[in-house]
Amino acid sequence: MPTKLLAGLSLAFALICVAYMTVDAKAGWDFILPFRGTKLLALVVVGVAVSTATVLFQTISGNQILTPSIMGFDALYVLILTGSVYALGGLVVADLAPIKTFLITGSMMVVVSLLLFGSLLLDNRQDLFRMILTGVILATLFRSLTSFLQRIVDPNEFAFIQVASYARFNDLSIDTLAIAAPLTALAVVSAWSMRFRLDVLMLGRNISIGLGENPHRGYLVTLLLVAVLVSVSTALVGPVAFLGLLVVSLARFVLPSPYHSHLLPVAALISAITLVGGQLLMERVFRLVTPLSVVIDLVGGLVFLTLILKSLRR
């Protein structure tokens, strides 16, 4: 177990959290503590959810350049949200408690992604690049359908959905946090409890059967966790295109270990540090107008291209 690395990362994480809570704190503590505290918790939840979903998805797809975002998972969530506004009417959705909305859209997300991505992943004659390209095109399709539906709904309801379509770390939907945080914790604990099975699943379908695992069941359970985690993070901050790729690639670079017992916590810590630290820098140090999500997309996109070109040279 890479104890030193984990200790260092935890320390860095703690320091950044303290900095986030204290830098520029002008108002009284009774205001700052709940206000910044909730935002901090939300950022950490998103960070852990995204990194865990990405690690899990890379394991079952047997590929280290894929993420749920690239394959269109969060675009699907936004489409489902838009679709429910279209079907039920935005006012109805807005009137529902945010938790109820989240439960409805989240469970639809789980069903649809199991059907759609499950059949993609379980088809063992599937060509890898065709699978990826399918995902990328599906993402475009979901986005087009979303903007299509956005135009069809009432202009009053439009504003409601538009908020959901962009990543926004400044303006988190913290009202869903009460359900998002425990759900993330549950999913992360489940992922942790199957860390050894995940190690085996990563070796591919046939070898994991040989080692006594049931890959179909493993893939489906993992996909279910991915769907839950993506729903959580998308509901909180909207789609985060390259965050997962960025932090998980960083984690693999810092600690090249094949074991999920190492990768999951390291990636989660790096992800939380990136989000909290990035938000701290953007918001209070550089005072940039550009949202953190855009900067993350830029850096993440570069990482993706570098990874592909590097992997080809070997």
């Binding site: 690239i70 060509d127 690049f129 065709r130 990826i132 390209l133 990328v136 295109a241 940039l288 107008v289 550009t290 949202p291 855009v294 900067v295 997309d297 830029l298 996109g301 570069l302 993706f304 291209l305 592909i308």
Partner: peptide
């Protein structure tokens, strides 16, 4: 790997798009 080309192209396009969005915000 013919399918790698459009995949890389889409990401490359998304990356350039993010550059625009960055300046647009600033």
């Amino acid at each position: 790997q013919p399918l790698l080309v459009p995949l890389v192209g889409l990401i490359y396009g998304a990356l350039l798009g993010a550059v625009s969005v960055f300046f647009a915000y600033q």
